[in-house]
Simulated assay, not measured.
Amino acid sequence: MNTPWSDWQKWWMDIAKTVVGAFLGFAIAFTVFDWFEQDRAERRALCVQKVDRMYRTLAGLQTAGSNYRTAAHNTLIELYRWRDEQPTEPMRRWWGPAYAELEAALRGFDVAFPEAGQATSSIRKSMDRLYKILDQELIDPRLDDIADLYHRENPPTEEERRQAASPLPREKIDRRRPDVEKELATIKEAQDRLGNIASTIIMQPASAVCKSREIGVDGAA
């Protein structure tokens, strides 16, 4: 037969239940609060990384664009004194690394700043036009003439080699130089325009920048 609890025992049991209940409530509240804080910290970290990538993407585009314009200009100047039977280093630099770096930077900008829409297309169009002028109109014909000399049945004479290795007619380069310089100026203007677009986006509060990219960060700065 169970002995009834005394008032003293009931009082202590009530105290114990109150303490346990309060402890469990505190533990649950702390766990929920901690989870929200961790989630907020993670989203803030993602936002910081996103904004940092945007800064680096913009800087990369400006550098790649400047390098490409320099390489294209150097190629134009090189054509005035080009005597080699092969493309020179400035030409290879423009063809290869400078082009690849700018194309990669443009792709990165499109991803980082989708708000800009097709703003990078004008640079790509100028790159295509520069390729047609410098490569297809000025460089390739000379290389083709040299290749023909060495692929025919009789080897080229010294005079033929000398003529093949002579610089391009200056008037031919001068005729296309304004078009080259126009495309380089177009690329520069497009770079500046993209820089303004990107700067306007980045200069917003980080919370607004990340919210537009579905990374909510309340109160992030």
Score class of each variant (00 low, 15 high):
172 K>Y: 05
136 Q>T: 12
143 L>P: 03
166 S>K: 06
144 D>P: 08
136 Q>W: 11
156 P>G: 04
153 E>W: 03
141 P>F: 02
179 D>E: 15
137 E>A: 11
179 D>T: 11
157 T>N: 07
145 D>F: 07
164 A>Q: 00
143 L>G: 01
176 R>V: 10
162 R>H: 08
159 E>W: 07
171 E>W: 13
140 D>N: 10
144 D>G: 08
137 E>D: 14
147 A>Y: 14
179 D>H: 15
174 D>T: 03
162 R>Q: 13
141 P>I: 06
142 R>F: 08
143 L>W: 01
150 Y>R: 11
136 Q>M: 13
150 Y>E: 09
152 R>V: 05
176 R>P: 03
150 Y>T: 06
157 T>C: 08
154 N>H: 08
162 R>P: 03
152 R>L: 07
174 D>N: 11
145 D>R: 15
167 P>E: 01
142 R>A: 05
147 A>F: 14
174 D>Q: 06
147 A>H: 11
154 N>S: 12
150 Y>L: 05
145 D>M: 13
172 K>F: 06
160 E>L: 07
157 T>Y: 08
161 R>T: 10
150 Y>M: 08
154 N>W: 05
170 R>N: 10
174 D>A: 06
178 P>T: 04
141 P>M: 02
174 D>V: 04
179 D>S: 15
137 E>F: 05
154 N>C: 04
167 P>R: 04
140 D>E: 10
170 R>T: 15
146 I>T: 09
167 P>A: 02
169 P>H: 00
138 L>A: 05
178 P>C: 01
170 R>C: 09
145 D>N: 12
175 R>L: 13
169 P>G: 00
167 P>C: 03
162 R>C: 07
169 P>T: 00
150 Y>Q: 08
147 A>G: 11
170 R>P: 08
146 I>M: 09
153 E>Y: 00
